[in-house]
Amino acid sequence: MLYFAIIMPVFLIYPYMIWMIIIVGILSQISIFMLSKWFNSMYASKGYEGFVEIFGERMVRLLAIIGIGFIFLKVIVIILGYIEVVRHFIFPSVNTNWMLLFILLICWYVASLGMAITIRFIVIAFLCTAWMLLLLLKLPFHSFASIHDLFPLIPYEWTMKSWKGVLFIWSAFSGPEYLVLLAPWFNKREKILKYMTIGNAFTIFEYLFIFIASLLFFGSHYLGENKLPVMEMIRYLQSPVFERIDMILISVYLFHFVFAISIFLLLFYGATRITLKKSKDQTTRLGFALSCAIFFICIMMSNELLWKKATNQNILLELEIWAGALTYLFVPLLLFISLKRKGRS
């Protein structure tokens, strides 16, 4: 997940977590397998109707209400996390609420163009940001980075913190469960297992790469002292034209955030319509603008009340780590089991 990729090394710290990333990645493949079963079923293409057929309308509305909470939490964490990065590295004196407004305005514009166009935007977002990983390739070749920074590779003590790290990785792999809601817009559902496996493999590779690079760059002892290690790493790079390319890269990274938040905005709008029993009515611009406004106000409030006050223990972040892990565990499981039961009866 976007923001988690930035802060991940802080939660892992020890070199043996390399294995944990791989193991959790393989476990995540099981979740993906269960999800793909859903995608291949006939219910997926029907969207809302499909869910109603399986769970019944009341249950779907209940799930939608719960989903709104999860969506809110996720968006709040990623957008506020990103704004914090911006404030730390680009504009130390920026008023975060303004920044929030600007980003949400862009997302509103993106989302107002409709789901199909928003989903298509991912290709652009991916192409505009994926090359950033290549820049990190330079870091392991600095003179102060040595292979010894990766040792020892096996754990000699296993504490609560290590468990937390595993939970964090699992949560960082979460996200594909939201694809279930986008199923009607996919046209190649037969091959989805293949695509999702490729995606999962790429995520494992990306996390491994970032983590190993940050271990080599900081060493496992200094890594814990940094708040945003990946950004510090990027910042250390210097291009001949611009001395601080981190500013450009952080801005480019906005592509992903805009994409994710726009999707979640649309999901939020859809979920609200379901809970208000209006899913059969025509969508309206006013309704959408209203839900965006609600979004903005809620995020601003949580920014003022919770995020800014957080020092060491950020309650929102903690919650999101748990929430991400839970949804990624239970959503595929729930769908899988209910599909099996439906198939039997």
Binding site: S146, H148, D149, L150, F151, P152, L153, I154, Y156
Partner: peptide, 11 residues
């Protein structure tokens, strides 16, 4: 000290 670190032994 870093030369004493090995992948599979306790430092």
């Amino acid at each position: 000290r870093k030369y004493t670190l090995k992948p599979f032994s306790k430092p």
